[in-house]
Design a protein around this nucleic acid. Sequence first.
DNA 1: CCGAAAGCTGTAGTGTCTAGAGCTTTAGAT
DNA 2: ATCTAAAGCTCTAGACACTACAGCTTTCGG
Lengths: 145, 145
Amino acid sequence: MNGLERVMPIGALAERTGVKVETIRYYEQVGLLPPPERSEGNQRRYSRRHAERLAFIKHARDLGFAVDNIRTLLRLSDTSGIACDEAHAISVAHLEEVRDKIARLRSLEKELERIATTCHGGVAACDCAIIEALADHGQCNHAHH
Amino acid sequence: MNGLERVMPIGALAERTGVKVETIRYYEQVGLLPPPERSEGNQRRYSRRHAERLAFIKHARDLGFAVDNIRTLLRLSDTSGIACDEAHAISVAHLEEVRDKIARLRSLEKELERIATTCHGGVAACDCAIIEALADHGQCNHAHH
DNA sequence: CCGAAAGCTGTAGTGTCTAGAGCTTTAGAT
DNA sequence: ATCTAAAGCTCTAGACACTACAGCTTTCGG
């Protein structure tokens, strides 16, 4: 049961990569992970190459890349050498998305802070500042939503 | 067509609140927005109270509250006075979620930055640093993914 | 009273899994 | 060789919060 076995069933792959069994089958279904060999009884038998590819996929998903982009990145990593431009473009675009999301969440954080601290949860004290804040958008300082 | 009309069809409500027609019907279907009166020909006719409630919902959604939580907040806002504690708890929990998400996105931003700047997209220059970074999780500085 | 715009219901699709039913295979112990 | 429990298989449906369409009916201005 060490990492040196040449072939493994889906459960072992799941354990090694931290990707759930169902998710692995899903990745195969949507064409991210190539279909592996099968045992005589039709069970999947994965090689180390599969494990590497799945690790790549998991890492990219953890970084928030969409499955579609991962498909492209995998294609790029398969076609040897060239086309690094495209990978760079995907990463930069994704980085921008992430920064954007952070900015939006920050302004959201500010408003939630304001709302949540206005009412401290005392029963009689407010009636209720949170509800009022949500009801009346005019109170908030946002420009863009 | 000013804001003073006492009753309006779904399209007018959509325009005034910035919520799409289909989304309004969806909110009715899942019990967020109470079913309005109907015209003789079975079309929805909304009152100003509906518009207010929908504004509340939209605001909360913009702030990222889940539909389920909004349902609770609406219930609280209906049962007059008391139960402010619960609204506070929901808001604080949500604020924590948001902060958590921000933290995760920040560390993600760091790594994407590192990856994207390692390879500048020159065709021959790398083969390819981005792909390698994704393939080899060991390179990244994260603790927790 | 005509025709275009807006409305209606109901169904299916989006993306990324997750969960379950109902069955078969495998691996280890006896 | 046989038994059994764990793990695997396929297929379907569900989760979230919508969105989009098909095919029909109502409304409203001219």
